[in-house]
Design a binder for these strands. Sequence first.
DNA 1: GTTCTAGAAC
DNA 2: GTTCTAGAAC
Length: 765
Amino acid sequence: MDPGEGGSPAAPSTSIAAPAFRAGPGADTREDAGKQVVVILVGPPGSGKSTFAEAVMAAAAGRPWARVCQDTIGKGKAGTKIQCLKAAADALKEGKSVFIDRCNLEREQRSDFVKLGCTVQADVHAVFLDLPAKVCISRSVSRTSHEGNVQGGMAAMVVNRMLKNKQAPLLTEGFSRITFCTDDDDIKKAVDMYSALGPSHSLASGVFGQKSKGPVQTGIMKFLKKADTSSVNKSSGTMVTSSERKTGQQNTTLKQENLEAGGACSMQVEKKLDNLKEKEEQSKERVSSDTSLCTLAFPSISTADFQFDLEKASEVIVDAATDFVQKHDNVRLVLVDLSQKSRILSLVKDKAAKKSFDSSRFFTFVGDITQLHSKGGLQCNVIANAANWRLKPGGGGVNAAIFNAAGEALQHATKECADTLRPGNSVAVPVPSTSPLHQQEGVTHVIHVLGPNMNPMRPDCLKNDYTKGCKVLHEAYNSLFENFATIAQSYTGKQNDETSSRKSASGVISPNDSKTKREGSDDSERTKKYNSMGSSDAPNQAREEDNKKNAAVTNKTWGSWAQSLYEVAMHPEKYKNADSILEISDEFVVLKDLYPKAKRHVLVISRTDGLDSLADVKKAHLPLLRSLHSAGLKWAHKFLEEDASLKFRLGYHSVPSMRQLHLHVISQDFNSPSLKNKKHWNSFTSAFFLDSVDVMDEVDQHGSATINPDEKLLAMELRCHRCRSAHPNIPKLKSHIAACKSPFPSHLLKKDKLLSASTMRAGCS
DNA sequence: GTTCTAGAAC
DNA sequence: GTTCTAGAAC
């Protein structure tokens, strides 16, 4: 069989498949008919778009390039988008490949340029110059002769405004290749790659260079590995379409050919494999191109770690799923499992076969639920997660895989929507557009589901009560599918409405929507019912474990320099004459911070021995936390009487540097020479700073505070705590905050987290 | 050249 | 937590 048959262009027989150069991941160039390329450079001012295009054009390997720059298109001055589109179309007609050199950070802004590719059948690529905001600001602030006049003091504002709305390019926009560059090294590699892209070469398709997840390997080596293990079906799913079945057969034939040839014709084999790979990708395309159906991929709930009987679970799945697809149009449900030998898949397949419904709208699929698009060719807008009750990552299985694949963004987005989940319930979380799961797999929502548990080692064990178990499992699937239907509805409605689908993707459809839903009467009824079923005290055990873990965190050794607060707390009388001690009680000492990070900054130090930090705090300490809080409030009020322009926050550092639990009372001007570095700034303005009111709530509800000990929080880029603008360094940040009059973020206005003269008055009245 | 950051030592 | 300082960034 000739693998070249079937319409893919035959490569020149004299050429070799492997490129003569290789410039980093994804530089999998092939010689072929020589398509033109439209490269859309995406990045804010200062990200180096023009430099990129100029560098490639200066070193280009024979391919004719044109650079379309909006900043110069009007006779050397800034022009319009229309002018750019026309110039690009003209250059393409002349046979040139084109760099689109305008920011194009939003999907809508670049969509017309993506369409250009269709007119001349050119490949459309995106190169996303996704450098840290502070680098772009820094560069654009300092440049003196920018073509578009984005320089000097205005630059920071422009860059910040643009970055607020940035949307990373997605394959679904119509790009055949997306290259992420997050530092100068990435940029250099990408420049080298495009420079070496000769007129008859083309670059491999896919997403390359995303740091959070390895590049999607689409090179020939991956395919060779596949061919060696004959595992095409295993990795690309069992929803064997006719085209895929054909590919599988070709693959086997090819392997035999290779063996017979004894490897002597390895070049030819490589070439054939290359063609086959393309064909395989085309077949994937056919599977995934059915985008008229909003698709939910879901794992079997409760049958893994929760040890729910597979036979019974499969009945529930088939019942709930077939019922759902019969009632809803334009949706597909796909039950996914990793292994081809999956018993739950075969049970479901068998049971579903006995029912009459449209089998293209509910089927099973073998593959990794986090890589359905890239590895399995199955486009799913929504995936379900078999979550734990705390909605926390880890624990192994699907939950760990999904949180891993989605990155931290999903953890934060989840936290926005819900803190915990009861068995039988689900919560839909919009996947942030920054998440690799969104960018690489096109997943816009993850729905966390908690099913019934039959494992005595896990919380809420139903002790083999399958009457309740099946009921709760049914509720879990119904809740999942209902949530999916809501998403599908908005999705279908917005398919032709780019703007609103963008909002949905970036999470502007407020997470509160799902929160409201979650807390709706239906759910609370269910929760009540479930509670009355006599759930075990296992969640408390889990919390107990949490507390132990937290204690272990604090089991660190404190340096001698970290002991001073402990000394003051244990023996305040020794220091009572010092100016810095403001108040001493049995429970706490109030101390002026020796190195205040704002105009007013005091510490309310607990006097309980052994309570080193927040991680040691348990429910029994709640009265103490309340005492510390009211002492803090009292002092904040006193300071507000002296200066009504101040605002205060009361809170704890997630991981304090000084031993002995202490509450910070700090004014929000951050006007102090002692605030010197990034760590200082981020420790008071990022999630590292835990508001006292939240801490008390959590300790009250869960017996401990949720601590995010992530050091990355302290290393984050410098952003204004009011308007969230980014700044390249501390001095620039400080001059900005001295002038910034933006309102504080809304989350601080809730629960009186931000104290001001007016909230104080309101509190008194 | 100066400014600024980040890591080591305390 | 701070101070000191090498060296990166400008």
